[in-house]
């Protein structure tokens, strides 16, 4: 008999984000290409699993990058690392 495991549908991948002095993303590296942020559609901070040994504290951004694609990125506030949701190639369009 087999073993099953649930596969994550939305997997964050590490990425490089260039921020403006005010901390807002200015450009995002997607699939090896730097995409300029055209607009920030939304941003929010999520604090979750604070009751566990592995709490989560993230600053999410919903960005429109050149040439008009919507991407989700977040900054892991504890480590200051940036992640991009979805496969980088898919996000690159």
């Amino acid at each position: 008999m087999g073993t099953h495991s649930l596969q994550q549908l939305t997997i964050p991948h590490p990425t490089r984000v260039i921020c403006a002095p005010n901390g807002v993303p200015h450009a995002v590296d997607i699939a090896g290409r730097r995409r300029t942020v055209v607009a920030v559609r939304d941003q929010w901070i999520a604090q979750d699993r604070w009751w566990t040994d592995d709490p989560v504290e993230r600053h999410f951004y919903e960005l429109i990058v050149d040439p008009g694609r919507v991407v989700f990125v977040f900054c892991e506030l504890r480590s200051s690392e940036w992640f991009l949701y979805g496969h980088p190639r898919a996000a690159a369009g």
């Binding site: 099953h4 649930l6 596969q7 994550q8 549908l9 999520a46 979750d48 993230r58």
Partner: peptide, 17 residues
């Protein structure tokens, strides 16, 4: 399939089987 659709973390909201 929905897992924790109320979660703030997108990777915990849905899964594939």
């Amino acid at each position: 399939i929905p897992l924790e659709t109320w979660s703030d973390l997108p990777e915990r909201q849905w899964a594939l089987i």
